[in-house]
Computed example of a mutant assay.
Amino acid sequence: MKLNLEKIPREKTLSKQEFLRKYFKPQKPVVIESFIDDWPAYSKWNLDYMKLIAGEKTVPLYDDRPVKHDEGFNEPHAKMKMCDYIDLLKSRPTKYRIFLWNVLKEVPELQKDFKYPDFGISLMKGLPMLFFGGSDSHTFMHYDIDLANIFHFHFEGRKQCILFPQSETKFLYKIPHSLITREDIDFTNPDLEKWPALEHAKGHIAHLEHGHVLYIPEGYWHHMKYISPGFSMSLRAIARKPKNFGKAVYNILVMRHFDNLMRRAQGQKWIDWKNDQAIIRTQKKIHSNVA
């Protein structure tokens, strides 16, 4: 059996009014295929261009190794010059990814290549982030700490995106006091005998190509897999629903610091306990849901 995933709707383009009515207000994801054709980035941005303009920058790299108690929040697993990293991406599959790489801070001239679109909601203009990955590299299933509305612009290559709304959290084996699910779940080909709760989860799937924009509603879980080497840029807007905004404040001011404190106090025992609890709590919720 496979996950219960429906294809995300696709639109050639959308007016501000159409986007707000059809997708933002009901909080539904959408892929917009031809929204940024007039950006200089549409014709300029590819891996070779990034190598040319940012090749001497040292970039943080992440892979899919499990979280360890002695690693800080978003601490990179390696570092490399961008030129060497792009050579690696183009030469062979690699698990190394770049994420949350601030365009304005690292390469300000890239800002000339895009504009902040008017979707009818205010975007956070200091946080345009780039994400890079090689063939078959992927993120863990997670949601963002601020539960933001995300506009994900993809460049070069193909990327598979699997999304779940917060309503499906009870089926996803969420790790307590964190923003991720069990790291040993392969969401592209899950073992449903080992993870039976996933059969009940209802999600969404889309494949992105160069120039496509994916709208991810606030707080949505997302799993990104690079089918081929490429990169994306995310623009974001704060959570508008009071419940989600409250969760964002709690995550930033309380949850993150509590988790770091417990890692220092209990070490790997804390990580192991959380992984066990993800299974125990999900099983309890399934049994109560079925009953």
Rank of each mutant, 00 (worst) to 15 (best):
F231N: 07
K12R: 12
S167N: 03
R21M: 15
W45G: 08
K269D: 15
R97F: 06
Y96K: 09
P128G: 10
M82K: 01
G246V: 05
P165W: 12
E33G: 00
P9G: 09
L5V: 06
W45S: 01
Q283E: 08
G203T: 05
R236N: 07
I185P: 07
L100A: 13
D259A: 10
L88N: 07
D259Q: 13
L147G: 07
K174E: 14
V213P: 06
R264S: 07
K81S: 02
P217E: 06
M233Y: 05
E71Y: 11
F114Q: 13
A201K: 06
R263V: 02
L192F: 01
T58D: 01
S43Q: 04
N260M: 15
H69L: 02
L147D: 14
L192A: 00
R263H: 05
D118H: 01
F151V: 04
D118P: 01
L14M: 10
E6K: 10
G157S: 05
D37I: 10
F73T: 10
F114H: 12
F73K: 08
F132H: 07
D144G: 10
M233C: 09
W270F: 13
S167L: 05
D70G: 00
A237W: 02
K225D: 02
H287P: 00
P128F: 11
R10P: 07
G55H: 03
I279S: 10
Y226T: 05
I205R: 14
K51A: 12
S167Q: 11
F151G: 03
D272S: 15
L214Q: 04
M80S: 08
L123C: 01
H204F: 15
Y62C: 10
I252F: 08
K79I: 05
M50Q: 05
K90H: 03
K12T: 13
D48I: 01
L253N: 07
L14Y: 04
E109C: 11
K28N: 09
W270Q: 15
T139S: 13
K95V: 03
Q283V: 01
Q17K: 12
K105W: 04
H210L: 03
I8N: 00
P40W: 09
N4L: 02
Q166L: 12
I205M: 09
K12Y: 11
P190D: 01
P242C: 04
S137E: 08
K28Q: 13
D144Q: 05
N46K: 02
S228H: 08
M141Y: 01
K241A: 12
P9D: 14
G120S: 02
G230S: 02
P128I: 11
S232Y: 07
A239F: 11
A239E: 10
F131S: 05
Q17D: 13
F140P: 00
D191I: 03
I180Y: 15
M124L: 12
K269W: 14
M129I: 14
P117V: 04
E71K: 14
M262P: 11
L198P: 09
E18R: 15
I175Q: 08
Y96W: 14
R92T: 15
E168G: 06
R281P: 00
F164H: 04
M1D: 00
D84S: 12
